[in-house]
Write a protein that binds this DNA or RNA. Sequence first.
DNA 1: CCAGTTGATTAAAGACTTTGCGTTATTGTC
DNA 2: GACAATAACGCAAAGTCTTTAATCAACTGG
Lengths: 395, 395
Amino acid sequence: MTTTTALRRSNTQAVLDVLLAGGRHDGVALMATTGLSRPTVHGVCDDLIARRLVVELSPAGGAGPGRPPRVYAARADAAHVVGVDMGEATVRVAVADLRGEVVGEASAVFPDPRVAAHRRIVLVRDTLARALAAAGVAASNVHAAAFGVPAPVTADGHAVAVDAYLPGLAAVDLHTALHPLLVAPVIVENDAALAVLGERWRGAATGRDDAVLLLAGERLGAGICVGGRLVRGSSGGAGELGFLHLVSGVGDPDGIGRLLRRATGVAATEAFAAARRGDPTAVAALEAVSRRVGRVLAILATLLDPQVLVVGGAVAEAGPVLMQPLRRAYTAALQERPLRATPLLAASPLAERGTLLGAVRVALDDLVPRLLDLHRLPHAGDATISLSGRAEVGT
Amino acid sequence: MTTTTALRRSNTQAVLDVLLAGGRHDGVALMATTGLSRPTVHGVCDDLIARRLVVELSPAGGAGPGRPPRVYAARADAAHVVGVDMGEATVRVAVADLRGEVVGEASAVFPDPRVAAHRRIVLVRDTLARALAAAGVAASNVHAAAFGVPAPVTADGHAVAVDAYLPGLAAVDLHTALHPLLVAPVIVENDAALAVLGERWRGAATGRDDAVLLLAGERLGAGICVGGRLVRGSSGGAGELGFLHLVSGVGDPDGIGRLLRRATGVAATEAFAAARRGDPTAVAALEAVSRRVGRVLAILATLLDPQVLVVGGAVAEAGPVLMQPLRRAYTAALQERPLRATPLLAASPLAERGTLLGAVRVALDDLVPRLLDLHRLPHAGDATISLSGRAEVGT
DNA sequence: CCAGTTGATTAAAGACTTTGCGTTATTGTC
DNA sequence: GACAATAACGCAAAGTCTTTAATCAACTGG
């Protein structure tokens, strides 16, 4: 922060942030929101329009007296991001615009979860291509991408560190492997970590700065968000639950889905349905599983004291049949050493899409501060190009 | 960030931060460190001198050729802070200058740890007065204060939330209770939380942004630092270990000192001495205690993946006789589910002073960004006052 | 005593923001 | 259909801050 140009940049970013939050804003509204003066607001907006990040709309129809205001809105399609949930058995890809609206999506299933890395990459590439096609977005218009993986990641957040569940993937540099279908910077993050950000963005933890998510489907894994920032750990391993062998009555990090299958012999969704019908075997299995997971939740609640604990993964769709025994077990585990304020316990409304949305959010968080560097302001002589302005990529 | 004055403020703070880090700096050095130009650096320094935050020193003696540079240094005694470790049985107060040097210190012991709140406050006040007197610092020159307490604190960090160990203190507003001996803003924080910041500042976690401290003396309690920021929890309860009843072989949050006393019947320091001599009872007790605490350390390491785990509290002075069995137990507890990078385990060099130093650090972190608001730049007409400039508080 | 060197000081130019006032475009009424 | 009322725009002037560049000052060493 040295030259006065930095001041302009800061003000421009402030206006852009307001506009990206959505909706139409006129000059006075921006003045009030940002605290800037009228000439500055309109000057900044002119800059943003020249950068193709903002458009000026025609004034609203039924207005009051007085001169109609200039009305601005962010061009949500000025750039796009990609979020990927690269699970052991499935791949999900979402293409989203600058406002975070998912404009294209695709997914695929691996016949064999132990597939070799290069074949996995091929399927990821195909799925990405389908998602881009569905969105009608050119690869060159994607400027950030985030990948969620069921593994610890490197400290710089650019690669898989431990590929026990994704064999061979630690050796793959996704950025080069997906070139040129993806030319944007690539962020790699743990799936549970992304999921907690997804919940904070559009899920059960909306607006909460302190949230913990327990990904509970196949394997237990936690995503931790403190003060609005992700806890990654010094080597990307934060949220790992490898200590569960020390917890009495738990022992291993198996998830709810897997435990239910083992106990009932049927798929988790069928076990949930059976429990809803009152099937005693299913109900008992659910009770037993809840006691295990409730203890894990109690540990996370006590040590981290979040505002809300979210249960994520596909099992979150089960509803009360899961959440009721789970809540009982959670409060029972806490009761011996009560907390002052018991953190809320909620099922994720995003369920298995939490990681995907979190990936979109992370990609946006990476891109938005770079937007002003991305589209450099056209300099003098730009007017001569305006005749061929149609050359811009249509949407 | 709207007006250009904000730019000047930012640059002024940047120069001040460099100077507060210590040492003598000439103009060229400040230009290099801050990236500012020569006129700006000297202009900012002139401002800071007018605010009495910086002094200009005479150039160094044995210089080379050329015009001698202007040399600046922060006036460390331009303001002071107070750090307090308000334990169950002892109170420690430190008065420090702007560079964090402790210039006065005092402590006191409560005959009865269950003393009533108002009597506790009286002793805290007396101890504070003694520390200020020892430092030769006027109460009006203290501009921030932080208190460490063995309890969760309120979300705003201004009061004790649960006073199980400090009866009645939740109802006390320290700011008014200590007025007018302390007119500064008061921050209240958990003792383990402060201790981890102390370690990060001047202890075993120096320079590490991800660190966890286990206060292990009387009761186990953890302080968590992630990305350089303290994890407080939504209701100030982060780091509480109330889940230990769920951990097999642990059960309760008793600390090393207490467990050793219970097992050997003698004070912890004597038990350590006996173990050093090879006394089999003491060695066995230490082994048993280490197995318990090693599991707690393993849980913290796995879930939070810090760069370093620090064992703090008075027991940290025991040295290898404690750390060797503890390290063995820690690695043994991890071995069943190995981490990629095992976090370092270290004994705190600060030992029982960790919380006190952390309190000083927190008070400084609160004060330093306010310094430019504190001493407003004198305006026109100031020259007429300069004759009576001696009225400033001498140091 | 003078050349050489290093850095402070001063002046000019550029960038940005705000304040204040005149101007413009619309609505509603006579 | 003309005219006040209104709300917001747009321009000009002023002020603050920073940088660049040129000049000046102070000290060392021969």
